[in-house]
Write a protein that binds this DNA or RNA. Structure first.
Length: 914
DNA sequence: CGACTATACTCAGTCTGGAGGTC
DNA sequence: CGACCTCCAGACTGAGTATAGTC
């Protein structure tokens, strides 16, 4: 078969990158099947050596570089054709016996492939997954069944997850136990807030809602009329006449009353039941809003606070000083301040400002030229900001509250807008303040100065009829638009990356709800097509056309492992990848069919996973990594995200790579919730839910940074456990003290101290216990003294303290004695073997629960549940679960989430299915 | 190019668990 | 002695933010 380059559009070539040839010669497939070395060369990048190679890592990039140097050089100068010739001739050279083997291997593949595609496609098990050395990569779902080779490992992970859940359960049990008592109070509190219809709420925040209720009255009024609804005027008054605040406030109160009643009787507007909603591109008919809130102007530092250059305090122009302040205020953020790129970028921009505004002046007015970053000392500025911060922190609660209230008052007009006559919350109405850009990961632009956004940069989007928000005095907007196809209220471009920033509505707004709803409906629709899609990509995994085979392989990865699409990225962005942008070094192949992913994904979060894949996929990846490709070459060099998405779109309107993530996440959650038993306390059910949530989070690789004190916390818990184990040993020794015959009865081993609690540890532990007791006694002594003084009595003398401290001395002595004699005297009155056994049992229990808690905590340290809950799990699943198992929705959704998912909460009953 | 979703981080505020105290 | 209360540091949560993706 002759391949023609013409019938395959060149998709993604890199300037001097390496590209796969368009067609995949049969011989290559065969060679891959068999893993035959070409000409006896060891070629780790492509083939598998014959013989006992299975355990070997076939394509360590490093090894490739070495072993393969020569071939690479040759191949890189030739094109795909030579590759084909080479491999086919190699193939033909083979002795017959080898050929036969090739055939068998190929046959085996066919069989396994057909087996796979015959399988009921609906949600067949995920390929088994192996735990990464670090972190989270349990794959979820059916793959955890132990019929897969790696099932055991998965089961282990599952167990860990379960353990994690137990902690929650425990907490809940406790809570329920307490429920009768003090707990009730807080429960009632939250109930009154959570369960009572909004109209009943008295909090000021609720008033917004209530007003909303009023608007809702006219929700059945034709849109055009709504625009003219009288409420509109009211908003205008509020927005433009802050002077009348007190008046307005009184009015508000009044309204609140009415609203309350209104809301009780009035149906709120349910867009999800409105057939006219959500189709077409026109997003609104009328739109009114107050624009944006600018950050406060820069306040120059007090004249006593100056940065130092080469030890000399220098006065800067206020613009330069502001930039110095950006840096100075974050000296405690070592992560940034110790990053050379950050410092370099900052200093470049800082110098630019200095060149513009003039350099610093010393106290005599002489110019100080700032040229070396190393000579800059921002500490005085840092200390100034720190002092401010502590001052702020030290403010009384009342002061803080007043400050907050004032801010809220000032911002009130911007908080909401009128969207087709309904009051809607605005999301980010505050213009981002200037500062230093904090790109994530190794972002080449991190540390650059993010400039203050001027009104002249801001475009306003608003209804034609509406009053245009006033720009700040002496300024004007860049532009005022009336784009009804946009959902944004204001927009500007940021100076670092030229990215567009939008002011949009809050997550609980109708428009966002609608698109959220659509997103999940789209994912549900994918259910209808998924079988066909999977069938197709399985077939195309063997396509002779390189582009198709790559596409099929990519879809496989996206479907199975929830990878992101992976758009191309520029030079001036952090070097992160998704599926289509995976590079040679991000995938390691380990025969027979394990793929190891290790790359930085979105936000430079590491994706590490060892997974077993379809034989054909394994083979394909081998082909895609074949030399001359090497480090930094694209694996999918014939594929782009747009080609991929275009293809997906042919299956279903609007189907793109990201839909698979939503689909798989929600589908997994649905399955897990379906399997859940309805028994147990509320707390246990919540824990079960969170476990399922956790699995989805792991699937999506949602991580969080490990909390600063985590290691310490774990260590503390370990020490506590060890303390208990030591105590356990002591109790056993007490048994011997009571009845020496026990040694024979139970065997000497029973009384041995655990090995890890060696002599040194014991001494340290004992010392710690003694010291702890001393501290306690001292503290108590001081406190008692304070009390005495407060009561006007004399405080106790130091002698009393010494007296009291004797208890600790006793303890110390006791330990010493124990160490010396190797015996422990039985404690407690009337000690018996039975009592000791009971003690032992108690200790064992405590140790067990602590261990569970510890493991749970450790396993959970870098899994973030929130992201999947907010973005991937269809909220209706949660609502169904809540209804079916009778757990209040508040246990799953916070107040804001309940608002965001109102459409879900109100629209489903317990029979709903994803 | 532009507009939208998705993401982790930050910080303030809330909650918890354990120690000590009281009855 | 144990049931319960109080206090407080430290852990955890939630809302907000701005960055990083997708299409």
């Amino acid at each position: 078969m002759s391949s023609s380059d013409d019938d395959i559009p060149l998709v993604k070539g890199r300037a001097n990158g390496v590209k796969s040839q368009d067609r995949i010669p049969k011989s290559v497939d065969k060679a891959m099947d068999k893993g035959r070395p070409s000409n006896g060369h060891v070629d780790p990048g492509v083939s598998i050596r014959m013989g006992p190679v299975e355990e070997m890592d076939v394509d360590t990039p490093v090894a490739n570089g070495h072993v393969n140097g020569k071939r690479k050089a040759r191949n890189s100068t030739t094109n795909g054709k030579s590759y084909k010739e080479a491999s086919s001739s190699e193939d033909d050279d083979k002795p017959l016996s080898k050929r036969r083997r090739t055939l068998q291997a190929a046959k085996a593949h066919v069989e396994s492939d057909s087996e796979l595609s015959d399988e009921p496609l609906a949600h067949r098990p995920r390929p088994a997954v192996k735990k990464p050395p670090k972190a989270t990569a349990a794959q979820i779902g059916e793959s955890s069944d132990s019929d897969t080779p790696l099932g055991a490992k998965l089961a282990k992970e599952k167990a860990q997850i379960e353990k994690a859940a137990e902690k929650e359960a425990k907490a809940i049990r406790k809570e329920e136990k307490k429920a009768a008592g003090s707990k009730r109070r807080s429960k009632v509190n939250s109930d009154s807030e959570d369960d009572v219809p909004l109209a009943k709420k008295k909090k000021p925040a609720a008033s917004a809602k209530k007003t909303n209720g009023v608007k809702d009255e006219d929700s059945d009024v034709p849109l055009s009329r709504k625009a003219q609804a009288p409420k509109k005027t009211k908003v205008k008054v509020e927005a433009s006449a802050p002077a009348k605040k007190s008046n307005a406030k009184a009015k508000k109160e009044e309204e609140t009353e009415q609203d309350r009643e209104a809301e009780e009787e009035e149906e709120q507007y349910k867009w999800w039941e409105d057939p006219t909603k959500g189709d077409g591109t026109k997003k609104w008919t009328t739109l009114e809003h107050a624009g944006v809130v600018f950050p406060p102007d820069y306040e120059p530092l007090p004249s006593s606070v100056k940065m130092r250059y080469d030890g000399v305090p220098v006065s800067l122009h206020k613009d330069a000083e502001e930039v110095a302040g950006f840096y100075g205020s974050m000296l405690n953020s070592t992560h940034n301040v110790e990053n050379p790129t950050f410092n370099k970028n900052f200093f470049e921009d800082f110098k630019k400002i200095l060149d513009k505004t003039g350099h610093g002046k010393d106290k005599n007015g002489n110019t100080v030229k700032i040229e070396k970053f190393e000579k800059c000392d921002f500490k005085p500025i840092f200390e100034h900001f720190e002092a401010e911060r502590t001052k702020k922190k030290a403010m009384s609660a009342a002061e803080k509250k007043a400050l907050k209230a004032a801010k809220e008052d000032a911002e009130a007009p911007y908080m909401h807008c009128m969207w087709d006559g309904r009051k809607q919350k605005v999301g980010n109405f505050r213009v981002e303040p200037p500062g230093l850009f904090r790109g994530r990961g190794e972002h080449p632009k991190t540390g650059k100065v993010k400039q203050r956004v001027q009104p002249e940069q801001i475009t306003i989007n608003i209804g034609k009829e509406a009053k245009i928000p006033e720009p700040p005095e002496g300024h004007h907007w860049k532009e005022v638009k009336h784009d009804q196809e946009g959902t944004w209220l204001a927009m500007w471009q940021e100076n670092i990356n030229g990215a567009y920033k939008y002011v949009m509505l809050a997550a609980n707004s109708d428009i966002k709800g609608q698109s959220d709803y659509k997103k999940f409906e789209k994912a549900r629709e994918l259910k209808k097509h998924i079988d066909r899609i999977r069938e197709d990509y399985r077939r195309e995994l063997k396509s002779e056309v390189m582009a198709d085979r790559q596409r099929a392989t990519a879809i496989y990865l996206i479907d199975q492992f929830a990878l992101r699409a992976g758009n191309e990225k520029g030079e001036d962005e952090a070097d992160t990848v998704g599926c289509c942008s995976l590079k040679y070094q991000h995938i390691t192949l380990r025969p027979p069919n394990t793929v190891i992913f290790d790359f930085l994904g979105k936000d430079s979060i590491r994706f590490y996973d060892e997974v077993e894949v379809d034989q054909q996929v394994f083979k394909n990846l081998k082909i895609f990594k074949k030399p001359p490709k090497t480090t930094d070459d694209d694996i999918f060099d014939r594929l782009t995200t747009s080609a991929l998405n275009k293809h997906l779109g042919s299956y279903m309107q609007g189907l793109t790579a990201k839909v698979f993530r939503t689909y798989n996440a929600s589908w997994t959650m649905a399955k897990l919730l379906r399997e859940m038993k309805s028994t147990g306390s509320i707390a246990e059910k919540v824990k079960d839910y969170n476990d399922a949530n956790r699995k989805v989070a792991i699937l999506c690789n949602h991580k969080r940074t490990v909390a600063a004190g985590h290691a310490g916390q774990i260590e503390k818990m370990e020490e506590k456990i060890n303390g208990l184990r030591y105590q356990q040993w002591r109790v056993k020794q007490m048994m011997l003290d009571i009845d020496p015959k026990q040694k024979k009865k139970r065997g000497a081993e029973y009384f041995e101290r655990p090995e890890d609690l060696d002599g040194e540890w014991v001494k340290e532990h004992q010392a710690a216990l003694v010291e702890e007791q001393r501290q306690k006694i001292r503290k108590k002594f001081e406190k008692d003294n304070e009390k005495l003084v407060a009561e006007g009595q004399k405080e106790m003398k130091a002698k009393e303290l010494e007296e009291r401290l004797k208890v600790a001395d006793e303890l110390e002595k006791k330990f010493k004695h124990e160490n010396k004699t190797g015996k422990v005297e039985a404690e407690g009155k009337g000690p018996t073997i039975e009592k000791m056994e009971a003690n032992l049992e108690k200790l064992t229990q405590r140790i067990e629960t602590m261990k569970v808690q510890k493991d749970d905590k450790d396993n959970n340290k870098e899994v973030a549940l929130g992201t999947s809950k907010i973005n991937y799990i269809d909220p209706r699943l949660t609502v169904v679960f809540s209804k079916k198992f009778n757990v209040p929705i508040e246990r799953f959704f916070s107040k804001t989430l309940r608002e965001k998912f109102d459409w879900a909460i109100q629209s489903v009953d317990e029979d709903w299915e994803f």
